[in-house]
Design a protein around this nucleic acid. Sequence first.
DNA 1: CGTGTCCTTGATACACATCAAATAGGGTGG
DNA 2: CCACCCTATTTGATGTGTATCAAGGACACG
Lengths: 248, 248
Amino acid sequence: MNPLDSARWSGSEPRTQDPCLGCASKRFGICHPLDTSALDEISHDSDRHCLPAKSVLFREGDAATRSYSVLEGTVKLSRLLPDGRQQVVGFRFRGDLVGYTAGPNYPFDAELLTPGQFCRIERGKLDTLLRRYPLMERRVLDMCLGELAATQEHLVTVARRSAESRVAAFLLGLSEAHRRRGLAQPELPMPMTRGDIGDFLGLTLETVSRTFTAFKRAGWIAEPGGQKLRILDMGMLQSLAAGEMADI
Amino acid sequence: MNPLDSARWSGSEPRTQDPCLGCASKRFGICHPLDTSALDEISHDSDRHCLPAKSVLFREGDAATRSYSVLEGTVKLSRLLPDGRQQVVGFRFRGDLVGYTAGPNYPFDAELLTPGQFCRIERGKLDTLLRRYPLMERRVLDMCLGELAATQEHLVTVARRSAESRVAAFLLGLSEAHRRRGLAQPELPMPMTRGDIGDFLGLTLETVSRTFTAFKRAGWIAEPGGQKLRILDMGMLQSLAAGEMADI
DNA sequence: CGTGTCCTTGATACACATCAAATAGGGTGG
DNA sequence: CCACCCTATTTGATGTGTATCAAGGACACG
């Protein structure tokens, strides 16, 4: 399971890039398995939001009263540590559900890295919907199992792999997450800073920067600018992620 | 959320230490919220198993055809890395559900550290039960959300904390997990080896051993032998886990 | 009593953190 | 269009926490 991509589209239908109809778009996110009447009800209970980059959806410790289905944009989930550093727990993309958690308070901050659109729904209403529509509850359970597997995978990466391996694994994960959603563009959008990546991988931003430089010099990736990244040697990144040492 | 204790008993009822009636014990594990007729059906679909220490419930990559509700014993979940090392993803105790995962194959090994008892159920049958009993599905979702939060918490520990902090956090988590279940015994059972703990915390067994020695010398813990551990200065462990440095 | 497994302890090495400073890029206002 | 500022990035020099390598000791078990 890809640590950056916890959502799994059920079935294998190609993603249509239909204009986004909101949460109540039949083929989208948690609403994917629902019929028309259910979608109608959801439209009543939820509402659309557009937010600029750097907006905060919620903060660690806030009462977890709302959940967000991501329609567009990239979200960073992070925990603050007592010493002021942060640990990025994950990134979320189109189709993911954010903020539906165990316990009464959010366990992490959720912050936008890009402008984004969301379908926002009150926790209580979502619970009611889940009771009413078993298919939806089942879908949420599946997404949760997926997130769990992804987080475990990421745990392995952080606990055991070298800096090189971690960065390679991150790039592959990001690529996979985007491939799953939109059409596979050769240019991968990468809105996160070196600092974000470091906080995700358990490295300092300097180490991340050095590793990116090394990968670029070796010709395995390129950064054409504009928050974009291009993977030039996928195979090499795969061997690195698997743990084979490169003598750069 | 405690990274060693993903299960959360709903409500706050004190755990009765009733003789274990199997999975179909009303107040237990995933069956906790069910009524009598549901428990009857489950009794038909599942069966009890007793296994000695070091038994393997399943291996990473096996077809995920069965799930196990832990009635008694400690289970180690671990992933094998290409270089032969392992990462322990978590420990599971009484009341936890093991092996109900996203995807068609188990993503980790499950191995007994102590003798154990389990309620085993076919994946397909469990899925059917979940469809039939929404309360049970809801309970599984809650447990999954709990596991997710616990794994994220553990991720922070492994990615960001010093060896001392990690070991302190591990001991506190273990203590909490046991407090939640049985009566709080002063002697904490600790069936895992230094190697297991190291593989859980992203440390080598030598580092874990040194840290235990230091903690014992400082008088914060004691090991009376027989796989038991006693915490003598909970407060000190808490400050260590929170990240305050001790000059041992 | 031997053998295997786990644990402890010491000496040394190294990958990455930390500290420091220069450079690049992107947006804003004059 | 340019000057400025702020943030992100790069690069270098140095330090250190933990891994690694190595060897001996404790304990359980047959």
